[in-house]
Simulated scan of single mutants.
Amino acid sequence: MSKVNITPLADRVLVEAAAAEEKTASGLIIPDTAKEKPQKGIVIAAGAGKKDEPLTVKVGDTVLYGKYAGTEISVEGKDYLIMRESDIFAIV
């Protein structure tokens, strides 16, 4: 897990997306143009939550989120997603 100097505000979380699958279950190599956008990642930082609504997720949780959830940002050469906690479907 990486250390980033970003503190999300309110109910937002910073997620590092998992790597996209390189091969299919049968062993076929997936080209870059056909790779699916990952929908799983690790929470790197979390805000304090809204007033009277603390966050459910915490730093280090592996989460599942929507395919088009969040906003992609790049910090120190690494790509992250910043999204609202409501965009997260589950903690794995």
Rank of each mutant, 00 (worst) to 15 (best):
M1A: 04
M1G: 10
M1V: 11
S2M: 13
S2I: 11
K3W: 02
V4T: 12
N5V: 00
I6P: 10
P8F: 00
A10V: 03
R12T: 14
V13K: 01
V13G: 03
V15H: 02
E16C: 03
E16L: 10
E16A: 05
A18C: 10
A18I: 03
A19N: 09
A20F: 00
E22M: 13
E22W: 00
T24W: 00
T24M: 07
A25T: 14
S26Q: 08
S26L: 15
G27E: 12
L28P: 00
I29N: 15
I29V: 14
I29M: 10
I30M: 04
I30D: 06
D32G: 10
T33R: 07
A34R: 14
E36I: 09
E36S: 06
K37Y: 01
K37A: 15
P38S: 11
P38D: 13
P38M: 04
Q39I: 13
K40L: 08
K40F: 10
K40E: 10
G41W: 02
I44L: 01
A46F: 09
A46I: 04
A46D: 02
G47D: 04
G47V: 07
G47E: 02
G47I: 07
A48E: 14
G49I: 11
G49E: 07
K50N: 10
K50P: 06
D52Y: 03
D52Q: 08
D52I: 03
E53K: 15
E53T: 14
E53R: 14
E53A: 11
L55A: 03
T56A: 06
T56M: 05
V57R: 08
V57T: 09
V57F: 12
K58L: 09
V59E: 02
V59D: 07
G60K: 03
G60P: 05
D61M: 09
T62L: 12
V63M: 04
L64T: 11
Y65A: 01
Y65D: 03
Y65K: 01
G66V: 05
G66S: 10
K67E: 14
K67W: 02
A69Y: 06
A69P: 06
G70M: 02
E72G: 05
I73Y: 01
I73V: 12
I73F: 13
S74P: 00
V75L: 05
E76Y: 10
G77L: 13
G77S: 08
K78V: 08
D79A: 09
L81N: 01
L81V: 01
I82V: 15
M83T: 02
M83F: 00
R84G: 15
R84C: 08
S86Y: 05
S86F: 15
I88A: 05
A90C: 11
I91Y: 04
I91E: 07
